[in-house]
Design a protein around this nucleic acid. Structure first.
Lengths: 129, 129
DNA sequence: CGGTCTGTATGATAATGTATAATACAATTT
DNA sequence: AAATTGTATTATACATTATCATACAGACCG
């Protein structure tokens, strides 16, 4: 479990860790059912406050990414998509708009943006970070 | 100049407006060289504080989206890409990773994500919001 | 020139978000 | 029983966000 925190980032550390945990799950570094380090353990590893890790795990549980069980630990949720497809579409489309606006304003074409996404896709699939 | 502010959003209003201005420029609703409403004017229209609009314009000027001229007004910057292509790539790739992680964790395929991006692309090109 | 429009800048205030710290409680495992 | 887990609270500190009031400086026009 190697997550990296950038204290100079504008992103709060709890969001950085949330992103990295999601990424690790998506690229297969963490599998459904697998046990996460305990709140206190991860806090110690990352040298951040246990309350912050609790917030991270809670948010991920709320998003359906983790399942928390008192006394047992935190586990990667089984791959069950509970959200309606319209909701999924809305979330992804929101991200799509952002990448398009950024890309287009730099003068990139739709194809060039796609190439960058493809490269990132390969990177994720290879488990790189 | 019709921007909409959602006070219930988790996004701060200055970020919402920044996004919408960028989007409007990208879809042709605002053209390079065109004059923006003055800080006080936009503040009045959106019913937010002039200081907040000043922050918005400053941030956009810093990003090279607007050019501010004291006593004259704020203008959409000419289409000059000053950033190094590596920097552009880095920014877009960061967004790419986010959309991929969200899409993949919902079980979408690379192709399905691409379809959503395409739909959003058409929507932007049509000038929809 | 004088007035009015611009962006620029500052200080004060308030609400919210972020992070740490200490502590206690409840469920589970050994 | 002891240890480990998640859960929950309270207090504290700092940064971010947004408002408000005020003043300054460049540009333009009659």
């Amino acid at each position: 479990m190697f997550f990296h925190i950038d204290y100079n980032s504008s992103q709060p550390i709890y969001q950085q860790v949330i992103e990295q945990i999601k990424l690790t799950i998506v690229n297969g570094g963490l599998k459904p059912g697998e046990r996460m380090p305990s709140i206190r353990e991860l806090a110690k590893t990352l040298k951040i406050n246990p309350t912050t890790v609790a917030k991270i795990y809670n948010e991920l549980a709320h998003q359906g990414v983790l399942v928390l069980r008192q006394g047992k630990g935190a586990f990667v949720a089984p791959k069950v998509v509970s959200l309606a497809s319209e909701e999924i579409h809305r979330i992804v489309a929101e991200h799509a708009r952002k990448i398009l606006v950024e890309g287009l304003r730099f003068g990139l074409t739709r194809e060039e943006i796609d190439l960058i996404i493809d490269a990132e896709y390969q990177s994720i699939r290879k488990g790189e970070q």
